[in-house]
Design a protein around this nucleic acid. Structure first.
Lengths: 235, 235
DNA sequence: CGGCTGCTTGATCGCTCTCAAATGGGGTGG
DNA sequence: CCACCCCATTTGAGAGCGATCAAGCAGCCG
């Protein structure tokens, strides 16, 4: 608890969408109230059920937010990409985190006390408005996933999930686009609302068709167009 | 377009959660920029794909927000209850409404130009913070529904849907709690991610077990505990 | 090299969708 | 006021997608 925090780079902080359009002095003030923390793979930012009194903005890396039901089913709520806010939904009302945030690979991240951020928002309404925009996007995103889950067959949903991950965490390498963090069949299943068995069968089939190349916790997209054709049901 | 709008009752407006904690003068200003409109059953507030330049707060009634996929599948995104905001997700960025908002019964509703509301938020940050809270709740709600859809069997999902509707639009009458607006099997199916056939079978079964009483576009809950037992899988 | 963890693959079962058709309630127009 | 028609609902039969159960395999780390 008495760790040393590195000094915060205001320019880097300014690139986060939550702080777009703020004045230099506002940014100074925001930075002055933040802690900059690191998490290695599989370490936690917060766990489901803990008192939600912190808000996070991801600087580098990828964070997985997952949720477990009373019956023991786990689902992946989202993958957070650099520049995004997480842990902000229960910001007000002092309630609990509805999910667990884990580092999917090495992460750097800013952290605020939620009360502090609340005050900053009152002083600089632009932050609240930016937050509204981000939350709105998140809402649109989850509604899309909801619609997919309600109306599409498994293969299409998995295709959508893989394409989205490729877009937000894909790295161009020889032969295709590699998803830059360890992604198990189980993760993909929890993200697509199915089981790891079904995901495994689907990926195997895609591999024989030359659409992807995959291995242990590793997925590379070789033929994005082919996947899009599946996702959009163009056959 | 040159309709007459009734004068706005500031006290009534103040009861909407979006404007909680505002000063009297702020409320006056908010009211001064609003229009107060009425919609009868099945009339639209906005339709999917239209330019999103208005934000609404529901005063009285119930609004259904639904969405249709390119393949023609329709789903119900949410039912809006009095005091809630709707149409606010695409507030910024001048994009399009992602769904269609229809009056589920007679509604009264305040309406703002989205630019106007944006300015009001800059002047009175409390509005933006209230909006964040409401959006956060909405996000939590849809995530719960997503989790249900991903992990639960149809009967439990329908039970959850019916219980939620009972809570937000239920009226105590002799014999149970009546859902106060016309609700077809199709609506319930689109809300629960299934087909009207399956919903019909389930409701019939519940009726023979004395859990509900239902008819044409009408559902009354007779035994909430029994439904909760199904929803929570307590058997 | 051994053990663990993640992945693959086969076989089976059943929930739920799909297709099909009949029934009935309610509002409208004559 | 009655008859008709439309639309919501009910009910049946059948098929299939994907979950579940059950082994066996393989990459990776210690």
């Amino acid at each position: 608890m008495s760790e040393k925090y590195p000094k915060i780079d205001v320019d880097h902080l300014a690139s986060a969408r939550l702080f777009q359009g703020l004045s230099a002095e506002a940014l100074e003030k925001v930075a002055g109230n933040a802690k900059y923390i690191k998490r290695d793979i599989n370490e936690y930012f917060f766990r489901q059920g803990e008192l939600a009194d912190k808000v996070f903005v991801l600087g580098e890396g990828q964070v997985k937010v997952s949720k477990i039901t009373p019956e023991g089913h786990q689902i992946v709520a989202r993958y957070v990409k650099p520049g995004d806010v997480f842990g902000c939904v229960p910001l007000f009302g002092g309630s609990k985190y509805p999910g667990t945030a884990t580092a999917a690979n090495s992460c750097f991240c800013w952290k605020w006390d939620s009360k502090t951020l609340y005050k900053l928002m009152e002083t600089f309404p632009k932050i609240a408005i930016n937050a509204l925009e981000l939350l709105g996007e998140e809402l649109a995103h989850i509604r899309n996933r909801y619609t997919e889950l309600a109306t599409e067959r498994v293969e299409r949903r998995v295709a959508h999930s893989v394409l989205r991950l490729g877009k937000q965490a894909g790295k161009e390498i020889a032969g295709g686009v590699l998803i830059e963090f360890p992604l198990s069949r189980q993760d993909l299943a929890e993200l697509s609302g199915t089981t790891l068995h079904t995901v495994s069968r689907i990926l195997s089939e895609w591999e024989t068709r030359g659409l992807i190349e995959s291995g242990r916790q590793r997925v590379m997209i070789k033929d994005p167009q082919g996947l899009i054709a599946i996702a959009e049901d163009l056959l």
